[in-house]
């Protein structure tokens, strides 16, 4: 069952309540998403650390061939 943009945002928001989150359906098929997450907690973290934190918020939804999220392009940064 593919995920909706709102579901993805809700999961990320649980871990990053203050973040600016933008979800885009890349292919229009509800299966290839892009998420941009801008959060103050990212300050001082490198991209790997930032994106690990976002992946962790998705609680295994990206795991393996049976994961609900097949493709999620991530962009993360701290606010300017």
């Amino acid at each position: 069952m593919p995920m909706e943009a709102q579901d993805i945002e809700t999961l990320i928001r649980e871990s990053f309540p203050q973040a600016k989150i933008t979800i885009t359906d890349l292919a229009g098929d509800g299966n290839h998403w892009a998420a941009e997450v801008i959060d103050a907690s990212f300050k001082g973290m490198n991209r790997v650390q930032q994106q690990r934190a976002v992946y962790a918020s998705l609680k295994g939804k990206m795991d393996g061939p049976n994961g609900a999220l097949h493709a999620l392009a991530l962009t993360t940064k701290a606010p300017d």
Binding site: R47, V48, R52, Y55, M62, L74
Partner: peptide, 19 residues
């Protein structure tokens, strides 16, 4: 890190496709 590809330079994990 939950996705592939994964790039390593000199033993250090650099990132996946987006990074």
């Amino acid at each position: 890190w939950p996705t592939i590809p994964q790039l390593y330079v000199k033993g250090e994990f650099v990132g996946g496709c987006d990074i």
